[in-house]
């Protein structure tokens, strides 16, 4: 067994094409999923038991089913309803559907974490619920949304690899193509994993910058005894 990156030399363009599609699909699903997620979160907050029940079922159903199953349900469900779309669009829709449940929970939690009085004072003065959300609630929760949304977007970007199973030519699909042509699994998957890893690191870093721009991060300093620290933390001491 030897590691020979040269076998990939003809296949880099294919892998990069796949990576580019992975990025495009992830961004499109992020936008679609977030819009849907905000809508679900807002419906969930409408008073009464029915909106909560309906949105609760939506969220729990999507969260408890493997994404690959959601993907196939959408893949076979759209033609079943007479809708025929290219595989890439089907995959993006399924990905957005899947992510929307998580985004909805993120948005809902952030809104609920804000003191009720903020929304109520806007309502009492005569703002409509949407105006109160836009002028008073949204600007205050924006920063709190960034870290969990980034986490979810990373998860979603990774889940997009499953789109390979409905022949969407994204990165994982291309890696299987290259693997079939070269029979060099080590090289292929090392390269592909590195590309995913790189995308993840870039997204995480971008989110950190975004968070800093949206507002200063309040770091919580926890001071502790050194002996206890030996057991209760995993941070390596530099000497």
């Amino acid at each position: 067994m030897h590691f020979d990156p040269a076998v990939l030399v003809d296949y880099w363009p294919l892998l990069l094409q796949g990576a580019w599609l992975t990025l495009q699909v992830s961004v499109a699903a992020l936008v679609m999923g977030y819009v849907a997620g905000i809508a679900v979160a807002l419906i969930a907050l409408v008073p009464g038991w029915l909106p909560g029940l309906v949105t609760g079922c939506y969220v729990e159903t999507l969260r408890n089913i493997p994404f690959i199953i959601i993907l196939f349900v959408v893949y076979y469900g759209l033609p079943f309803c007479g809708i025929r779309l290219p595989a890439t669009l089907v995959g993006t829709t399924a990905l957005a559907l899947f992510a929307s449940a998580y985004y909805a929970e993120i948005v809902r939690a952030a809104i609920l974490a804000l003191p009720r009085g903020q929304f109520e004072s806007a309502r009492a003065i005569g703002m409509s619920p949407m105006s109160a959300m836009w002028h008073v609630v949204a600007p205050q929760i924006l920063r709190a949304l960034v870290p969990p949304s980034t986490n979810m977007t990373l998860t979603m970007m990774k889940e997009s690899s499953v789109l390979s199973s409905i022949t969407v030519p994204e990165l994982t699909y291309q890696s299987l193509v290259v693997q079939g042509n070269t029979f060099a699994p080590f090289e292929v998957f090392a390269a592909v994993a590195s590309i995913y890893w790189l995308i993840a690191v870039v997204i995480a870093e971008a989110s950190r910058r975004l968070e800093r721009r949206v507002g200063a991060v309040q770091a919580e300093a926890v001071s502790r005894n050194r002996i206890a620290d030996r057991y209760l933390s995993l941070v390596a001491r530099r000497t």
Binding site: K158, S161, V162, T172, L176, Q179, F189, Y196, A200
Partner: peptide, 24 residues
């Protein structure tokens, strides 16, 4: 840890399925 968190589970499964046999 960073590798496992930064790459898709499906790719990790492929690595175990395709790469491990190649190393015996």
């Amino acid at each position: 840890i960073s590798f496992v968190r930064g790459t898709p589970l499906l790719i990790q499964i492929f690595i175990a399925y395709y790469v491990l046999p190649a190393v015996g």
